[in-house]
Amino acid sequence: MRNPPGKNPRRRAPARLDSARALLAFQRLLHGALVRPLAPGDRMQSRWTDGRPMAEVAAEFIKPNDRLTAFDRLEIYNRMYWFRIIDSFYEDNPGLRAALGDRKFNRLALAYLAKHPSHSFTLRNLCARLEAFVRREPRWTAPRTALALDLARFEWAQTVAFDEAARPVLTAAEVGRADPARLRLGLQPYVALLALRHPVDTYMLAVKERDALRSEASNATTSTRHMKRSRKVALPRLERTWVAVHRVDNRLYYKRLEVPAFKILAALRAGRPLARAVAAAGRGVTPAQVQDWFARWMQLGWICRRK
């Protein structure tokens, strides 16, 4: 029964909507009512922020009709708001849901969305701050917070890899002509580099396989959050893993990376000149290995001009 942080909703509707300022005040009030978390049973909360009955508050600015009270009519919007953004959260985080279980995942969703409502014109960005939230408020994911962090990062990386921009790729000839001490290469914005504590790439594949089997078993259209689990996927054990989430021909892929290769790519992304980026790989890496890695990355189109 908490209000989202930030601006507290206005307590009363303006008496007259005769200016842009009054319209803004009205919209703040209504918005405050719409985004308040639902009460048990997916009903609108029965009391307003100041303790007055919500029915009384709603009746101040919404007309009833012969079938619905003002409360009922406002509740339609309150419910639609939460159903919409929770569905979006569920769609974006199937791995996190599988790892936490439905009840815990739902609590996490409500806590996150109450604190981080959408600030973007697109729901694509809804979970952009989930990793930071999990880190800051581990109580929602304990005792699986480390895994939850990996999954939040991994699932956001998939969003980035899906539709982030692609810059013009650099050719081997262009790289060969440049001075390695000064040359700064770019890494495609759609390539996400992840140093993880769990092999969540294989875990995600198992979750996707399970969900694909489940969806093939039934043609019924169901809200994402109400889908029943058919079987559990074994949780991954602790195992340091370095992965790039990327796309090829507009399909998503996960690519395991060796640690030195990961370090080179991370250094390139940080803007280091080529020679220093290669040095970041550390000792024990042969020039042949580095050449081989770069050849593969360029083949995948990862290496591009810096912005």
Partner: peptide
């Protein structure tokens, strides 16, 4: 319609209050 306030989006198509001031805005 409206659907955002103070940079927060509802992703809903919310009805307007039908006033002259709202029409002008």
């Amino acid at each position: 319609c409206w659907g955002s306030v103070d940079g927060t989006y509802t992703h809903d198509l919310l009805p307007m209050p039908y006033t002259l001031a709202a029409a002008k805005t």
